[in-house]
């Protein structure tokens, strides 16, 4: 279905209070991972785990970030027909962090509020993908431009 040219881009951002926020610092490392075939899901998880280790996230935080990545990458693979994951290691006063950006060229998300509500799913999974990833991360930002495609950006900072 063609979209109206003046249809606004759907956008949602949220932020759980991150610990001792300093100004966002520089990106210390960046890598790109394609999400084309099912094996890429596993590759993406491993890359995220390695990056989480590199920025000294604790074991629980590593698990949160890898799980969130798994949800987002699966969404891009199933609903978006594939896409790309960008992993960035961040550094700022008060701690380091990791930012994941998953984008796909799929049809986008028709009803973002519903998608963030638990139980909603248009494909495999329990529908906890998007909402779950939001709860596991400190910062969450999703954008669906009218032309299609979805970009989700999430960040978690090391605590303590």
């Amino acid at each position: 279905m063609a979209t109206m040219p003046d249809e606004p881009s759907v956008r949602l951002a949220s932020r759980q209070a991150p610990p001792f926020a300093g100004p966002p610092g520089p990106v210390t490392s960046r890598s790109e991972h394609p999400v084309r075939v099912e094996e890429d899901l596993m590759e993406a998880r491993h890359a995220v785990r390695a990056a989480a280790l590199a920025v000294d996230l604790g074991l629980v935080d590593q698990t949160r970030v890898v799980t969130a990545a798994s949800e987002l990458v699966r969404n891009a693979y199933i609903h978006g027909g594939g896409g790309v994951l960008v992993i960035e290691q961040l550094s700022r006063k008060g701690g380091r962090g990791i930012r994941l950006t998953v984008s796909d060229e799929g049809p986008g998300i028709p009803d973002l509020d519903a998608a963030l509500n638990d139980g909603f799913s248009t494909g495999a999974g329990l529908g906890h993908g998007l909402g779950g990833a939001r709860r596991l991360m400190h910062e969450f930002d999703v954008e669906c431009p009218p032309g299609g495609g979805t970009t989700v950006r999430v960040t978690r900072w090391a605590t303590g």
């Binding site: 629980v60 698990t63 949160r64 799980t67 906890h128 909402g131 779950g132 709860r135 596991l136």
Partner: peptide
């Protein structure tokens, strides 16, 4: 494992 249990609960499961 504890980290898995915590993550599952936060995920809403």
């Amino acid at each position: 494992r504890p980290p898995v249990a915590i993550t599952l609960v936060e995920l809403g499961l």
